[in-house]
Amino acid sequence: MIAATTTKMYAEAQETADAVARQFAANADVIDALVAQLKANPPRFIVTCARGSSDHAATYGKYLFETTLGLITASASPSVGSVYAVQPHLDGALFVAISQSGKSPDLVRNAQIAKAAGARVVALVNVEDSPLAQLADTVIPLRAGPENSVAATKSYLCSLAALLQLTARWSGDAKLLAALDALPDALRAAWAQDWSALVDGLKDARNLFVVGRGLGLGAAQEAALKFKETCGLHAEAFSSAEVKHGPMAIVGPGFPVLAFAQDDDTGASTVAVIEEFHKRGAPVWLARPGAHRDDALPMPASPHPACTPLLAIQSFYRAVNALAVARGHNPDVPPHLNKVTETV
Results as ranks from 00 to 15, higher is better:
109 R>D: 09
102 G>Q: 10
136 A>Y: 11
293 R>W: 08
29 D>H: 11
120 R>A: 01
271 V>G: 06
1 M>V: 04
302 S>G: 12
27 N>S: 14
270 T>G: 02
112 Q>R: 14
333 V>R: 12
21 A>D: 13
198 L>M: 15
221 Q>D: 08
341 T>C: 13
171 S>N: 09
197 A>F: 02
77 S>M: 03
46 I>P: 01
221 Q>A: 03
195 W>I: 10
195 W>G: 00
308 T>I: 07
113 I>R: 06
215 L>W: 07
58 A>G: 00
114 A>K: 14
54 S>L: 00
32 D>F: 02
195 W>A: 05
87 Q>E: 14
340 V>A: 15
127 V>H: 13
132 L>Y: 09
37 Q>I: 00
276 E>M: 11
45 F>V: 02
234 H>A: 14
301 A>Q: 15
319 A>M: 11
63 Y>F: 15
256 P>A: 05
275 E>D: 15
66 E>W: 03
3 A>Y: 07
285 W>V: 02
94 L>K: 04
111 A>S: 15
167 T>Q: 06
125 V>W: 00
38 L>Q: 09
196 S>L: 10
319 A>F: 09
271 V>C: 12
254 G>S: 00
250 I>N: 00
210 V>L: 06
74 A>D: 11
308 T>P: 03
279 K>E: 14
164 L>K: 01
1 M>K: 05
108 V>P: 04
182 A>Y: 05
317 Y>Q: 15
155 S>E: 12
197 A>H: 11
58 A>V: 01
179 A>K: 09
238 F>S: 06
62 K>C: 05
329 H>T: 07
39 K>E: 10
323 L>C: 13
307 C>H: 09
68 T>P: 04
15 E>T: 11
114 A>L: 14
107 L>W: 08
283 P>T: 02
260 F>R: 09
239 S>N: 11
57 A>V: 07
110 N>K: 07
103 K>W: 01
204 D>F: 10
225 L>M: 08
142 L>T: 00
194 D>S: 09
171 S>E: 10
107 L>H: 08
142 L>W: 03
195 W>F: 10
233 L>S: 08
131 P>G: 03
294 D>F: 05
332 D>R: 02
129 D>I: 00
312 A>V: 04
72 I>K: 15
119 A>T: 04
47 V>H: 01
180 L>K: 03
267 G>N: 06
336 H>S: 13
100 Q>S: 09
95 F>W: 14
15 E>N: 13
37 Q>W: 02
174 A>L: 13
139 V>Q: 09
83 V>F: 03
36 A>M: 11
62 K>S: 05
214 G>R: 02
